[in-house]
């Protein structure tokens, strides 16, 4: 499967609180997604719902390498990224239920989570459409001397679109502090990567634009963290963009409407053997960093957060009808 893996937690240089928080966040995202899937099946959530199960190590590992004022801009499978960047699961769940208390007031739904104050600059639902935006954010950081790094996450499917090539080229020409992170989960919707991309190793595409690149094991939160930290440091130093290909896998369908006819169950099962949460938990236990009591506490806390999020979302009001005409234009 390739990609760099970090074998030992102890060698990561991270303290116990940090690594336990990784587990906490990954579990919170997994439980959020499972609950969202359940609420979708019960008709409480509408529209498209793209779940992130299996890819949690990417969001948690990569975002952990950012500073608070750094920016994250991502694709439509954005729940995990938004939660990792700090949007309260209550406001995420309320958004899925189309409530006024949602992170974007019930206007965007699943694909458009956003919180300006947290530097979560959006889920964007036109594939690769946000890559040029990341270049613009990087330009602004340079022009305003902010030393702010933008982490731009997209899928393997995005690398076949003109936007991708235009954005990487200009990012390098303008030397912007952007980390391009490709979540290669091997499928663009239901089309396997080798059927959609003439080059299946995404990391090679960065070479066309002279952007340094690395391939990382996306099932290993520590490997993602380490690689992203290096890439972020590169960008913050003023050395320009960096490219990461993170190998991962989505356990569920593309969306809730996906009957998953395009891949064998055995393939899914094989990847589930490498579940990023289970494997990280086992690693922590093996190295004596996670006691049964600590695990139980994390399980309980994350369960409670999700239960509270559902309660909050269900009890929240719908947006008022007057909201229909609000915010079409900003007041100048």
């Amino acid at each position: 499967m390739g990609g760099k893996t970090v074998t030992k937690v102890a060698k990561s240089g991270l303290d116990k609180k940090t690594v336990l928080n990784f587990l906490h966040q990954m579990l919170l995202i997994r439980k959020f997604e499972d609950k969202a899937g359940e609420l979708y099946a019960r008709g409480k959530i509408a529209g498209f719902l793209h779940l992130y199960n299996g890819e949690e190590a990417v969001a948690v590992g990569a975002v952990s390498a950012l500073q608070e004022h750094d920016l994250l801009i991502t694709h439509y499978r954005d729940h995990g990224h938004a939660i990792a960047k700090g949007i309260d699961v209550k406001r995420c769940m309320a958004e899925l239920l189309g409530k006024a208390t949602g992170c974007v007031k019930g206007r965007g739904g699943s694909m458009h989570f956003f919180d300006m104050s947290l530097g979560m600059y959006g889920g964007w639902a036109i594939v690769a459409g946000h890559l040029p935006l990341a270049v613009g954010l990087g330009l602004a950081s340079n022009a305003l001397g902010k030393k702010q790094v933008t982490l731009c996450i997209f899928g393997d499917g995005a690398t076949n679109i003109g936007y991708f090539h235009e954005a990487l080229n200009l990012a390098k020409l303008w030397n912007v502090p952007v980390v391009f992170l490709c979540e290669n989960n091997l499928y663009g919707m239901g089309t396997a990567v080798h059927r959609a991309s003439a080059v299946t190793e995404m990391v090679r595409k960065a070479d066309a634009y002279n952007i340094p690149a690395e391939r990382v094991d996306g099932m290993d939160v520590l490997a993602v963290r380490e690689a992203t930290a290096k890439a972020v440091e590169h960008a913050r130093r003023g050395d320009g963009p960096y490219f990461l290909e993170v190998l991962t896998y989505r356990f569920r369908g593309h969306s809730m409407a996906d009957p998953i006819l395009y891949r064998d169950k055995s393939e899914v099962d094989e990847w589930k053997q490498r579940d990023p949460i289970v494997s990280f938990r086992q690693k922590l236990e093996a190295e004596g960093l996670l006691s049964p009591q600590e695990l139980e506490q994390i399980e309980r806390e994350t369960d409670e957060l999700i239960a509270e999020a559902v309660r909050f979302a269900e009890e929240s009001p719908d947006p008022p009808l007057t909201d229909l005409y609000e915010d079409i234009y900003a007041d100048s």
């Binding site: 040029p132 613009g136 235009e166």
Partner: peptide, 28 residues
Amino acid sequence: DKRIMDTPIAEGVIGGAAVGAAMGGLRP
């Protein structure tokens, strides 16, 4: 040349970079 910059002939990224630059605090 920090205030006025050439781009490649690539209208997609010109449009998108303008949106991103505005989001980042510039007035492109």
